[in-house]
Structures are given as structure tokens and as C-alpha cells.
Design a binder for these strands. Structure first.
Length: 404
DNA sequence: TCTGGGGTCCTAGGACCC
DNA sequence: TCTGGGGTCCTAGGACCC
């Protein structure tokens, strides 16, 4: 199986949420001693990450650089070094995987770990979490905060409350005492819009949210969001730690600045974006069937245009042709509104090997599995057949079931 | 305050099929 | 001829997260 399912909820707090503190900024301070102890922001036009010294001045991620410098005149701004962050992330995840096989990566700098059942081998969840923090500090050189609770959601809240460089355990049985005094913005899925809606109804804390009848909440924020928030406010979170989650889309985008761009400039940007995305697809062994063109204009209005192809592919010319067509079809929009951002995303992803095995069936070139396997073997070699069979067992496409 | 680059999930309408 | 209900897929937009 692709995903390993882990038991729902333990009677003890044994789910860890590990979250590197001010990740990009911490890597910069690690690698350049002159930055230590100083307010540091990574990024130029927009702050990608701020050190805790900078956060003390109110500097936050996603804030325009100009505003950040007004808040903190002594702010040191450094350009991002994405390779360094990728490597630091890999090193940190190596420590995670050495702690338990049950690791679910959420983003470049955070993950859930299930350490239930490790007590005999490795001690209590709290001891495991403390050792994890120490190892990341010593082996990677970065501060990390760990929240420990019975559910993923609460572990994540705990790590946010425990920051920076902290460890916070929410013992079983004390969940609501911990949760209910917190502001609703702590809930995963409450952003500016939802928060404003709820404030308008006098709801500010998670405890107050929990007191809102379910149906009333659903009508306030919509069915999916309402069910989600109602469950979280009552500390109901049945989600399991899932190993081996696959990416569902791969994309790239480029801000163009506000000055006008010629059509040739735009096309050159499109070519570069498609090249980058297709390269990443092939490197990951994935293919996609839907291409999305993303545009942003001078007034910050955003639109997307998408097209679904007959076959999933990572073939650069095929994907480029589809996107060029979409761009040309929106030529007037682009010219009249002043484009400021161009983005490309490929979604509806599949594993390339599995698709290769399915293609002969879809094309009508094969009617039996052996015929399909022969075609894969002749086109891609014996290794591809092995991978294709394994991938098919994991998630069958539209074709006959494989015999064992 | 005026904004980067990478993602996830949900909603809603229309086309199309049975 | 006009009509029903249910399902899937595609497209576009929106909210949110790091």
C-alpha cells in the first residue's frame, strides 16, 4: 500500500508536530555568525521569513520589505538561498525518519511523527521529543519546536504555542482546558476571511466557537469549513498520520514587475516556466494531464485558465503548446489589464511508469496485460516493467487486474 | 502595507452520459 | 415530445497554509 494507516487516537499524547523555527532565517543565522542575535529578514520585496529578533519588531512573513524596514530600521535583509534550505530540510527529515518510520511531511519545515508504541524502545513521547530537538540542534544546527498531543491538530496547535525553541505536551484529558482560551486564529483553516466572519458574530476564542451550534456554524462559513471547525473546536480530529503522501500538482510562477512586457517577453517567460516544471516532473517520475495558466494583473486580480489533455505527459513541447494556446486565447485580457505575474501548474498527476503501462490499453494497442507489458519493455526496458507492475498493484488504473 | 513562490482543498456551474 | 434523477468530468474561482 502507498499509505500506511496508523491508529486513530491513542489514549496518551503520542503524536508529535515538529516545526523548525523561522526556518529560512535560522539557516541564514546558522551559516553566517554575523547574523546571530540580529533582526534578520530573508527576501527582498517581500519578507519570506523573519528571525525572532525581527519578529520582536512586528516583522512577519509575507510582509512587504518596505514595511518591515519601517518597523525595524536595523533590519538585516538577505537574499534567499533555496538550495541551503532544501539541504537543511533533508537533514532534519533524516533525524525524523531515524526517530520513527511514521513520518508525515507537511511542508519543507514541518512534519507529524507518530511515536505511539515506541515507549519500550525509546521512552515516553516527551522524552522522544526532547531527544529529537537535541539531535536537530546538534546535527543540523537549527532550533525546532515540538508539540505533543493525542491528535494531529492539537499537536500542531501545541507547537505553535510552544515556539520558539520549545517543547509543549498537552496531556490526555486536558485538551479542552488548553484549547478553549486560545483565539480562533489558532485553528487550521481560519484565515482573514473566516476570522472576520466569526468576529462579526462575537466569536473570538475557540471556546466561544465550540459553543456555537453546529448548524449555525455551517450557515456562517459553509458546509465543509463549518464541519471542519466544529470538529476542531471540540477537539475531534480523527486524521491519521499518513506516510508517503504524494504531491498533487507541480508549478512555477514568475512575477514580472509592473512595467509593460512585450508579447515576446511573455512567451520567453512561459517557455522558461514550462521547462522548469517539466524538468521537475520528469525528475520526480510523474506526468500530468491538466495544465493551468495563472495570470495576475496590475490591480491584483487573478485569473486561471486550464486545459485537460487526452493523455498525462511530462513532454515539454506538448505542455508548452497547450499553455501557449491558453495564453493566446487570453491575449486581450493580458494586454488590457497589464499582466504582472505569469504562472504554470501541472496537476492531475500520475506516476509515469503506471501511465506507460496503461497507455497501450487506452490506445487500443493492447488487449491483454502481456501485450501491454511487452510494449512497456520494448519502449522503456525491463526496469520499467518492474516498476509499472508495482505501481499498478498500488493504485490500479483503468485496466485488467494483474495476476499475482 | 501592497505583496513571492510553492502548495492544498472546496465550491459551483455546465457538459455529457445513463 | 417533453420530462426525471444521478453520476462523472472539466473549468474557474476562492480561501487558506508555509
Amino acid at each position: 500500500m502507498d499509505r500506511t494507516r496508523v491508529r486513530r487516537r491513542s489514549d496518551e499524547a503520542s503524536i508529535l508536530h515538529a516545526d523548525l523555527d523561522s526556518f529560512f532565517a535560522s539557516v541564514e543565522q546558522r551559516d553566517d555568525p554575523r547574523l546571530r542575535g540580529k533582526p534578520v529578514a530573508v527576501g527582498g520585496g517581500v519578507v519570506l521569513a523573519a528571525s525572532y529578533e525581527a519578529k520582536a519588531f512586528g516583522v512577519k512573513a509575507a510582509m512587504p520589505g518596505r514595511v518591515a524596514r519601517e518597523l525595524c530600521p536595523r533590519l538585516v535583509t538577505v537574499p534567499p538561498r533555496f538550495e541551503a534550505y532544501t539541504q537543511a530540510s533533508k537533514d532534519t527529515f533524516a533525524v525524523f525518519h531515524d526517530t520513527t518510520p511514521l513520518v508525515e511531511g507537511i511542508s519543507i519545515d514541518e512534519a507529524f511523527l507518530d511515536v505511539g508504541g515506541l515507549r519500550r524502545l525509546a521512552g515516553s513521547p516527551m522524552a522522544i521529543a526532547e531527544r529529537l530537538r537535541q539531535r536537530v540542534r546538534e546535527e543540523v544546527g537549527l532550533p525546532i519546536t515540538v508539540g505533543v498531543a493525542c491528535t494531529k491538530f492539537l499537536a500542531k496547535v501545541a507547537s505553535a504555542v510552544g515556539k520558539p525553541d520549545g517543547l509543549l505536551v498537552v496531556p490526555a484529558g486536558t485538551e479542552l482546558d488548553f484549547l478553549h482560551p486560545l483565539p480562533i486564529e489558532r485553528l487550521w483553516g481560519v484565515g482573514p476571511k473566516t476570522s472576520a466572519k466569526l468576529h462579526g458574530r462575537g466569536v473570538h476564542t475557540i471556546g466561544e466557537l465550540a459553543a456555537v451550534p453546529r448548524d449555525a456554524l455551517l450557515s456562517m462559513v459553509g458546509p465543509a469549513s463549518g464541519r471542519h471547525l466544529h470538529a476542531l473546536a471540540h477537539d475531534h480530529d480523527p486524521r491519521e498520520v499518513v506516510v508517503g503522501r504524494r504531491r498533487r500538482s507541480i508549478g512555477s510562477q514568475s512575477a514580472l514587475g509592473s512595467r509593460g512586457r512585450s508579447w515576446d517577453d511573455l512567451d520567453a517567460t512561459l517557455v522558461a516556466l514550462v521547462d522548469r516544471v517539466c524538468g521537475r516532473l520528469r525528475k520526480a517520475g510523474r506526468v500530468g494531464r491538466t495544465v493551468v495558466l495563472r495570470l495576475r494583473f496590475g490591480d491584483f486580480r487573478r485569473v486561471t485558465r486550464s486545459r485537460t489533455l487526452p493523455e498525462a505527459t511530462a513532454h515539454t513541447p506538448t505542455i508548452l503548446a497547450a499553455l501557449r494556446d491558453l495564453l493566446a486565447g487570453n491575449r486581450r485580457l493580458v494586454i488590457e489589464h497589464g499582466i504582472t505575474l505569469l504562472g504554470v501548474t501541472v496537476t492531475n498527476l500520475d506516476d509515469a511508469d503506471a501511465v506507460q503501462l496503461a497507455l497501450p490499453f487506452h490506445r487500443g494497442d493492447a488487449t491483454t496485460l502481456d501485450e501491454a507489458l511487452d510494449q512497456v519493455r520494448s519502449r522503456f526496458g525491463g526496469d520499467a516493467v518492474q516498476r509499472a507492475v508495482l505501481l499498478h498493484r498500488r493504485r490500479p488504473l483503468e485496466m485488467p487486474t494483474l495476476p499475482d
